[in-house]
Design a protein around this nucleic acid. Structure first.
Lengths: 347, 347
DNA sequence: CTGAAAGCGCTAACAA
DNA sequence: TTGTTAGCGCTTTCAG
């Protein structure tokens, strides 16, 4: 640690590191005194080779530090042991859990996860998914923005699973939003709220539309007036822009399409001198990382994001490995997490 | 949207989708009336083929919806156009920005990003990196936990770059922590703090050790007493566990190894009736997503994480594509972001 | 149980 | 400029 000032520039390795030749089954075969095909058999299908030769081969492979070349294997088999995940925005914490779940399921099954993002563009999304398709055994699309037709087209080429959206003829993993919404509406109703505002998310998003619809349904059912405001970007900034409309709506409580919006909204409202929840209650969706950091902490409809990613990937891999239909009945119910941002309605 | 109750289970596609045969350069060649190798040339090295035949070939490829098979290409060339990124914990928001930066740089260069995590285990980390190495053209390790020797070993096989750590003979991208720490110490000093506590992070982490060392140096230099407490896990929970020690330390301000710890610490302190910053000031490191959600919002030494990921990946790809040494002088200085969690020292 | 041989899709000499 | 011909490393028949 002699030099402290120069560390902000990549250090230059002294010598160009010798990229060592990779060892192949031919090397192993030679060392073990067998045919390459026998090496392949021994390493892949234990039992289909004489026990002692197998041991000899394994020892040879070990000593040579042999590792199979996934690319070379992919050619004859057509399977790469790679699965892809497409998210619309790596920045959005909603996907962190989806990624984590998908990664876990993939790793568990011995698959490698490849990740890409579409930066909220439906065109880029399709293009990148298509590109990725060539190298993966299957694809998971998280809250995709592209059209149903495009998704179906992808599904015709390789197995595809979708999270947070329902698409015909495609493996779809969707949480039961209904349940959480019912809880939330009941919660607000019990607190005396009878006029609620709703800040919608991107109209291109299936999940955004769905939440809006179910919320409207439920409020009508509960004889609560729901005021739908203009949709905003599903970001903290988007939430801030909705503050004025929320204030002017005369509602005593507000639903935001997601937590990001809810958080931005709260920040802006508080800065305008509005007290939460004394003046207005706020409810979000998702329960993302950080939802409990705010002050007051955010009441939100929790989506089982991690499970969603995990289940989608598991289902996909089940299909990839030719397995039978994944058994349904996942525990994907949304639930209300009550925190500090909701309180009794202002008189 | 007829059925609302059944959506929590993967929908079963009616028919097993016909996985269409993938089209190869042979198909394109036949359609265009040329030899496969000509197709390869036309598509890869525009200009080395007659302009009109090239156009004919492109048209044929287009009409057949041809896409190159990356695996097949990887075999003869030895290059996959895939780069890997290893992080220690996908859950940790610190890596979100690193991932985003790396992804951006990779995509920009036409590479695909492969992601894996080590779940904070040095063994798993090395094993997964090694496994990944077979299929990538290069590897970026973000805040790795494995030993220098292991990193060097990886670097002998394929180009490797490291973020947030200095390793001999390996491309290292490290922010200039010094600068931010100096600012932070000066800030606290100006507020009258003369006894500061420090909650260290995982001892296995190079960056954790470095922050501790530089902080100690700087405080000594500024004639401030620094009380190093026991290290904790770099998580919100870890931060909570440090609260008692912090309170008992008698310090009027506390540095946490990272924002996660700082946030957990603040939560626990506040719940114990300690006021921030009236009773104690808190400073974190990184400026992660959510650091401004807390109440009070967190004063923190911001690390240019996104740039770190981007630069590391760029430098790596520069090396992969045989380019010359990446020009140094990146804008990777850390800076102090002053928010609400720091104030004048209690008398 | 094991060896021989063909071929996955593509690239890269080498010829023509 | 284009065709021919070998492979890249591995799996997988098919013989033996």
């Amino acid at each position: 640690m002699a030099d402290d000032s120069a560390v902000d520039t990549p250090s230059e390795p002294d010598a160009a590191p010798q990229q060592q030749e990779s060892v192949t089954i031919y090397d192993v075969a030679k060392l073990a005194g067998v045919n390459p095909s026998t090496v392949s058999r021994a390493l892949n299908r234990p039992g289909r080779v004489n026990a002692v030769t197998e041991r000899r081969i394994r020892a040879a492979a070990e000593s040579l530090n042999y590792h199979v070349n996934p690319m070379a294997r992919a050619l004859p088999t057509g399977r790469t042991s790679i699965v892809g995940l497409v998210v619309s925005d790596i920045t959005n914490p909603v996907f962190f859990d989806v990624i984590r779940g998908a990664e876990a399921a993939a790793t568990r099954a011995g698959y490698t996860l490849v990740l890409t993002e579409s930066e909220e563009s439906d065109e880029r999304e399709y293009e990148r998914a298509q590109r990725m398709l060539r190298m993966v055994d299957g694809l998971v699309l998280a809250t995709p923005r592209m059209s149903d037709d495009q998704i179906t087209a992808l599904g015709r080429q390789k197995p595809v699973a979708v999270v947070n959206r329902l698409v015909d003829d495609v493996l779809s993993v969707v949480p039961d939003v209904q349940h959480g919404i019912a809880e939330a509406v009941r919660h607000l109703r019990a607190l005396g709220h009878s006029r609620i505002a709703y800040v919608p998310g991107p109209p291109l998003s299936w999940m955004a539309r769905r939440r809006g619809e179910l919320l409207a349904q439920r409020c009508e059912w509960a004889h609560i007036e729901l005021v739908a405001l203009d949709p905003v970007a599903p970001t903290v900034l988007g939430g801030r822009t909705a503050a004025v409309a929320v204030r002017d709506s005369g509602a005593t409580a507000v639903f935001a399409y997601n937590d990001l919006i809810a958080i931005g909204l709260m920040q802006e409202l508080v800065e305008t001198g509005i007290r939460i929840p004394a003046d207005i209650s706020v409810v979000g969706f998702d329960d993302i990382f950080g939802a409990d950091f705010t002050s007051p902490s955010l009441t939100t409809v929790k989506s089982p994001l991690r499970e969603g990613g995990d289940h989608a990937m598991s289902a996909l891999l089940g299909r990839v490995t030719g397995g039978d239909a994944p058994s349904g009945g996942f525990d994907l119910a949304t639930t209300l997490v009550v925190r500090g941002s909701t309180g009794t309605a202002k008189a």
